[in-house]
């Protein structure tokens, strides 16, 4: 993967929740134009908090962004006014959520909800907005006759659609205004496995056609392996490793990434016990000193307990935050 122009640059982002929970700690993340960037981490590692901060919808209080910058197309999103930020949401940065059934208003037709966005951001007339929605349905595979055609979906209420159809509709809504960044927050987690693949392929295909960037959040390394160009691993609110997909899966540098990769079930190793990482993700209220992973790291040394390792570049485009990156084997 070549070095593209940076679309979203998150720098030193630090988010705390009252009282005293440190959800995101000096996080650094770059998303380039036209890449699918996988953000992987366990539950509670700060993935969703980060994405919510990007679209400016963190509830504050209790959340507080104490420092950092979120530079999107040259503007710091954290410095924008409410109204400016509102115009960016949905138009420039859109979101696809985890459970499609909950993210549609049950008393409104699906087509209406998507059409609403178009008239909101583009002031489209009813007729042309409907045309655009049908076009979006075709793009997301909802126009197919086995779904009863786009017109039927247009006039359906959410409960009349299956989970997969709803997720397709949700994606249609996400790309409705041709955003430059689509944040997909575990878009396949609530779906069954066969559907997961279909939706992943759809996202991949749409990215190819529309050339937008996608921040793909997941806790599932297999899913990310399937779809992302670039992968960042987050642990306790901090990026610990970030690299192109090929690099990170072949040559992981951070012990956490290594252990994560080892804990993916592999059909060739049938019969041998699956490796697990001992311990649990630290609570955001009591993050260990120094390197947050030192409590679970098999290579832990004295310095790890005291100093927070900085995110450093080791080879071209491969950054990691470990004192002994490259030394541990």
């Amino acid at each position: 993967m070549g070095e593209g122009e940076i679309l979203l640059h998150i720098q030193d982002l630090d988010i705390t929740f009252e009282p005293g929970a440190h959800a995101v700690r000096f996080l650094e993340l770059d998303i380039r134009k036209s890449e699918i960037h996988g953000l992987v981490g366990e539950s509670g590692s700060g993935k969703s908090v980060t994405s919510t901060a990007v679209i400016g919808l963190l509830p504050s209080p209790p959340a507080k962004i104490s420092s950092g910058k979120i530079i999107f197309k040259g503007r710091d999103l954290l410095k924008l006014g409410k109204e400016e930020m509102r115009k960016i949401r949905g138009r420039e940065i859109a979101m696809v959520f985890q459970e499609p059934s909950k993210y549609f208003n049950p008393s409104m037709k699906v087509g209406e909800q998507i059409r609403e966005m178009l008239s909101l951001h583009f002031g489209m007339s009813r007729k042309s907005a409907v045309e655009r929605v049908l076009e979006l349905f075709n793009l997301t595979g909802l126009g197919k006759s086995n779904f009863g055609g786009g017109r039927r979906i247009l006039n359906s209420y959410p409960h009349e659609l299956s989970g997969g159809m709803k997720q397709r509709a949700m994606i249609a809504m996400g790309i409705a205004c041709s955003p430059s960044l689509l944040i997909a927050d575990e878009p396949t987690t609530a779906l069954d496995v066969t559907l997961q693949m279909q939706i992943l392929d759809l996202i991949h295909d749409l990215q190819n056609r529309l050339k937008m960037s996608i921040l793909f959040i997941s806790h599932d390394l297999n899913v990310v392996k399937h779809i992302a160009n670039r992968v960042s691993v987050i642990y306790a609110g901090k990026i610990v490793e970030s690299a192109a997909k090929g690099t990170i899966f072949k040559n992981p540098m951070h012990p956490y990434t290594k252990l994560l990769l080892l804990s993916i079930p592999d059909p060739e190793k049938r019969g041998t016990p699956l490796k697990t990482i001992p311990g649990t993700v630290p609570d955001a209220e009591s993050i260990p000193s120094g390197c947050a992973f030192h409590t679970r790291c098999p290579y832990v040394r004295k310095i790890c307990e005291k100093e927070i390792p900085a995110l450093k570049e080791y080879e071209n485009g491969h950054t990691t935050a470990c004192h002994f990156a490259g030394e541990t084997e």
């Binding site: 919808l57 909950k102 549609f104």
Partner: peptide, 20 residues
């Protein structure tokens, strides 16, 4: 969640009240 989704899509408060 659908109110959150609507906000994430940039709907202003008035719209959310009347629509959702």
């Amino acid at each position: 969640e659908y109110v959150e989704a609507s906000r994430a899509m940039g709907s202003p408060a008035v719209k959310i009240v009347f629509l959702h």
